[in-house]
Nucleic acid binder design. Structure first.
Lengths: 336, 336
DNA sequence: CTGTTAGCGCATTCAC
DNA sequence: GTGAATGCGCTAACAG
């Protein structure tokens, strides 16, 4: 039924070792023999069995990528970066969606490890002890991308979320705003949600603006959430003149909520966020935001992983990529 | 270094066959023995090697999914449907992005087949002879989702794109529009791009509206493309009063181009499209569009694949799921 | 340059 | 219920 390397060997009148050599591009084969083998392969429609190869060689040339939420544009952009570099180094990648569920993340890590991937890339999300535990059982290298672990034991590639948030809020302050609201993500995630919150506080602090609890509300990173929380701000007796939103998607909700209330962005209220997903320039006004180099985060983390898999030495196993403030149309100076 | 089934056997004082049985939930094991084995597994931190298992059993319990463009929300939603059903039937799925390149699609199909997946799901995109050829070499079942092949030889799950387009344009006509532009995708793709074009023509035809070549322009499904093409329409001496756009993303571009020109949607120009991605309701005005049941397309195709993998008989191997016109805010009656 | 020989880690007969 | 033996398809020494 299925044609094996042995069938090819017989057909070509050589040994299976030779077939293996030509299939694996081993140079130690006479061109003539190589040709014979290729013809036999063609004739028989032979397709190498990666499973058998993996068992024999103890390498699968594939890396597992766990993606927290396949429908989140951030992660899909990171995935592109991962892929391009993976292809460059001739690794296959297998993507596993984890649906934002911690339990599923752990499960996926384990099945990936069972499948004997040569390395693991873990994207996004908060890193808990359970994660660390799962990573520890791995005999292959692991790198985090677009997230970090607090303990700092696992190689990672990410931006400095606190600094990014700081820069965003700081821009608002430079534009004369002093009543600045924030729509945050969950504070439970230290590497991301909480970091952005800290950046916000830090910027206020530096400018000598007192922190006002009523100016901070928690959203869930979704568009609808942005709308909802913004309504709260709009009903405040002294509503903020600018809002810092933890991600672009919520920020679009914020813009629409403001517009739906008959106000204008940025004339009445300025809005700034973080991420710079494609959608950020698919709104009117276009979003001013702090860009995360998503593609690069993916590319660099994959490159780091290849080094680790090759047992090359790496200087820093925790790399922080630069972010950039992208000025568009949603922020204006505050006129008092 | 790595602990094998054999180590567990020794540790538990049983044979490897027994360990294999408990790992695979074979009922023919005395509870007491089972317990001993589990303890040994725990103690040693044994993790089954899926590669070895795959070689021995000739099954990998994983299905390969090729996704044409991971950053396209349509496909990621379809992928969710696939995943949920796959989990339900205890299959792992490995996602492979093909970057909208035919050459890469073929390559990915082949590596997936080499990896001995138990089945293959091919998403989106035009199906060429090369694809068919690649599928033919597969010894495992293949199903297409969100696309169809013309020859009808491969099982598939999709909507009737022509009918969907027809319904969209028909709505416009019922609202009194007779000057209806269309922004199409490539006409090279029979199952999708061309089908929507045919639906447009069909609707005009039925209403006795003469077809006007200048009212049809080809875009590339991207936001920017929607903007660009719409500008062309706006400069037409007798510009259309309504535009049918082949997908939501371009339609958002259309809406913005119209607004940027100082006109209003839908008061001045109505816009309707196809897909109903999340973003369709993240614009002002919210898009009236024909919904594709993306999640269901994924779920149904995965279900179909499980049947095929089990060699169960299926009644129809080409299933067409219903679409639905979603009325929102971007279409208004035409006032002459 | 090419062939022979051993496994890789496990599922699966077939006995007992 | 359990164990012993065999082989899945291939790579990797090793020998020649």
């Amino acid at each position: 039924m299925t044609v094996t390397i042995y069938d090819v060997a017989r057909e070509a009148g050589v040994s299976m070792a030779t077939v293996s050599r030509v299939v694996n591009n081993n140079p130690n084969v006479k061109p003539q023999t190589r040709k014979k083998v290729f013809e036999a392969i063609e004739r028989l429609g032979y397709r190498p069995n990666a499973v058998a190869r993996g068992l024999a060689s103890k390498k699968t040339t594939t890396v597992g990528v766990v993606i927290p939420d396949i429908s989140n544009p951030i992660f899909s952009e990171v995935a592109r970066g991962i892929e391009d570099i993976a292809n460059m180094y001739h690794y296959n990648i297998i993507l596993c969606n984890a649906d934002k569920k911690k339990e599923k993340e752990i499960r996926v890590i384990n099945t990936l490890l069972e499948k004997q991937v040569d390395g693991l890339l873990f994207m996004g999300g908060a890193i808990t002890d359970e994660h660390i535990q799962a990573f520890k059982t791995a005999t292959v290298p692991v790198v985090l991308c677009a997230t970090t672990d607090e303990s700092g034991t696992i190689p990672s590639v990410d931006i400095d979320h606190q600094a990014a948030a700081f820069d965003a809020v700081n821009l608002l302050i430079q534009y004369g705003h002093r009543s600045i609201g924030m729509i945050s993500g969950t504070l439970q995630d230290p590497s991301n949600g909480n970091a952005r919150y800290l950046g916000y506080k830090q910027a206020l602090d530096k400018a000598g603006i007192p922190f006002n609890e009523n100016y901070v509300r928690i959203g869930n990173y979704k568009y609808e959430s942005g709308i909802e929380v913004t309504k709260y701000f709009l009903e405040l007796p002294n509503r903020p003149t600018a809002i810092f939103v933890a991600n672009d998607e919520m920020a679009i909700g914020t813009v629409h909520a403001i517009q739906d209330a008959g106000l204008k962005v940025p004339d009445d209220i300025s809005v700034i966020s973080v991420d710079n997903i494609r959608m950020a320039s698919m709104v009117r006004p276009q979003l001013t935001t702090v860009a995360q180099p998503m593609y690069d985060i993916g590319a660099v983390s994959m490159r780091l992983l290849t080094k680790l898999m090759n047992k090359e030495s790496v200087d820093r196993s925790k790399v922080v990529l630069p972010h950039e403030v992208i000025i568009r149309e949603s922020v204006a100076p505050h006129h008092s």
